[in-house]
Amino acid sequence: MPRVVRRRSLVAALAAVAIVRSAPPGWAAPPDRIDPKGLILLMRHAEAPGVGDPPNFQLRDCATQRNLDANGREQARRTGDLLRRIAAGRPTAVHSSQWCRCLETARLLGAGPVQELPALNSFFERRQEQEAQIATLRRFLAGLPADGGPVVLVTHQVVVTALTGVFPASAEAVLLRADGTGTPAVEGRIQVKDAE
């Protein structure tokens, strides 16, 4: 193959990679083309190394919990950048689990004041509470207006999976659309890439 043709092929291949890499996985459309009306982002907290909670876990003492690392804080900020593009100036309601890693993720999104919502708390080590907690969360979702502004729910993997069947990565969000029911359909998923 002539050298010029190989170079053009390489340039075309690199351009294709750049296009694929520039679009977050899971988007059905670019962020600025997603309708923010009635949008619900059900988000797993950003990267917090470890699994579960330490034996001395106390809800109001962050020193006893798994917390975000530097990568997790950057994930949350970058997700917030995407969220602001989607919201396009519409007020965004932000709700969070009471765990420190979720509250910090929610605050770093920079999307608005954060309200604690116990229905988003982890039941990883309290599976007996799952059914009642998910029922409460479904009632909350059913009460969201279909024509309202975006709503962000920062929670834990177990909650996202119990509600949607999706096993999200850290900082991944499942996109739902408020429809007056407690079982809004999954429209897509977003996950920011790690900074390079």
Rank of each mutant, 00 (worst) to 15 (best):
F124V: 09
G80H: 05
F57N: 12
D194K: 09
A135S: 15
L42E: 05
F124I: 07
P118S: 06
H156Y: 11
P91K: 08
N121D: 15
R60I: 08
S170K: 01
A119W: 08
Q98S: 11
G50S: 09
R90P: 02
L120Q: 01
A76V: 13
F167S: 08
G165I: 07
P30T: 08
M43N: 01
Q58V: 15
V4M: 03
G165C: 05
E74K: 10
Q75F: 07
L153I: 11
Q98Y: 05
D35M: 07
M1S: 09
V17D: 13
I19R: 15
I190K: 00
P30V: 03
L144Y: 01
P2L: 00
E131P: 04
R107L: 07
D147A: 14
D81V: 08
A142G: 05
L82G: 11
L175E: 05
T105Q: 04
V166H: 12
V4A: 11
P49T: 14
S96R: 05
A70R: 14
V11R: 13
K37A: 10
A87K: 00
G52R: 08
E104I: 12
P49V: 14
L153H: 01
V159E: 04
P55G: 10
K193E: 05
R126H: 14
A63Y: 02
R107H: 10
T181K: 04
T136W: 01
P25V: 04
E196L: 06
R66K: 12
Q58T: 14
A111M: 11
S170R: 05
L14E: 15
V174P: 04
R60T: 15
S97D: 01
L39P: 06
L120N: 03
Q133E: 13
R33Y: 03
I190D: 00
R33F: 00
A195G: 12
R85S: 00
T161L: 07
R138Y: 09
R127L: 07
E74S: 14
R177N: 10
R77C: 02
A106Q: 03
P91L: 02
R8Y: 10
D194I: 11
D61T: 12
D194Q: 14
P31Q: 02
A178Q: 10
A70Q: 15
V4P: 01
P184H: 03
L83Q: 00
L42V: 02
H95V: 01
V20H: 11
D194H: 06
Q98L: 08
P55N: 13
L103H: 05
V5A: 11
I40P: 03
D81P: 00
A15R: 10
G72N: 08
L103M: 12
P145I: 03
P25W: 09
L144I: 06
T64R: 09
E187V: 00
E187Q: 13
